[in-house]
Design a protein around this nucleic acid. Structure first.
Lengths: 128, 128
DNA sequence: ATTATATAAAACCTTTTGGTTTCATGTCAA
DNA sequence: TTGACATGAAACCAAAAGGTTTTATATAAT
């Protein structure tokens, strides 16, 4: 439900505190007070971070007795992974050209180098 | 130089405008005014975003005549990729258990399921 | 029944963010 | 040399982010 979320994954992981929270929860479910003990800020502050992570659906909380336990919900990170995968080709190419040349000693590897020119190298109309 | 940067990759990509800038630059080098034409905000605002991306070393700018052209520098995204790779095992496992079972009809796959229990399933001391 | 625990919610505060407008500067073109 | 163009830099501004403290409520334990 609620597709009108205030925080997305990108914003959620931008804060170092929230990344540390995710890391803590990666080892298992934890109540707020337990999580708080790992930081030097108030419980309320941590609760707010958890709320933000919740909105991004990176964590979920359930009430157990008088405490609320949070657990990691890593699924939304797939969006990040997808986003990343688009850019991987840009930095991988420098390596993959080398890889290609090494693995194909018969060829000269010119095609892949030309493709690299298309995207990242200086444009022909450039003034130097 | 300058290892005391104000913005890291996580913060840099948190803003949708900056992500769009990266996408634009993925097609090649562009001057500020060109980039600005793709947004409905002032050139100054875009320049600030570029400055932030610059500090995160996701873009670099060089002066060509009277214009400054920016290009994508995707290398810092490896940090993001590394961070992500840690969490991939948590959401991949659900699939990889299945994959393992399918690909190894002789085994029962119990070990990997036990490991999953260690990290993500309910704790034994839990009150339900 | 009483007290301690775990959290929720609200009010408040300061700094950062994301934007604007204005003015100054360097470069290209006529 | 005189504009036009592309950018840089500074001052300013409103809203959001990241905290705090205070007050209230539900549950557990004695």
């Amino acid at each position: 439900m609620s597709s009108a979320e205030k925080y997305d994954v990108f914003q959620a992981i931008a804060d170092p505190t929230r990344r540390k929270v995710l890391q803590l929860l990666s080892e298992g479910e934890l109540p707020i007070s337990e999580i708080t003990s790992h930081f030097s800020m108030s419980r309320t502050a941590v609760a707010k971070h958890l709320h933000i992570l919740s909105e991004a659906e990176l964590v979920s909380g359930r009430k157990i007795g008088r405490e609320k336990r949070f657990r990691l919900q890593p699924e939304p990170l797939t969006e990040l992974k997808q986003w990343l995968s688009f850019y991987e080709k840009f930095w991988d190419n420098k390596l993959s050209i080398l890889k290609h040349v090494i693995e194909n000693p018969g060829e000269d590897g010119l095609k892949v180098i030309e493709k690299e020119n298309d995207t990242q190298m200086d444009k022909p109309n450039e003034i130097t």
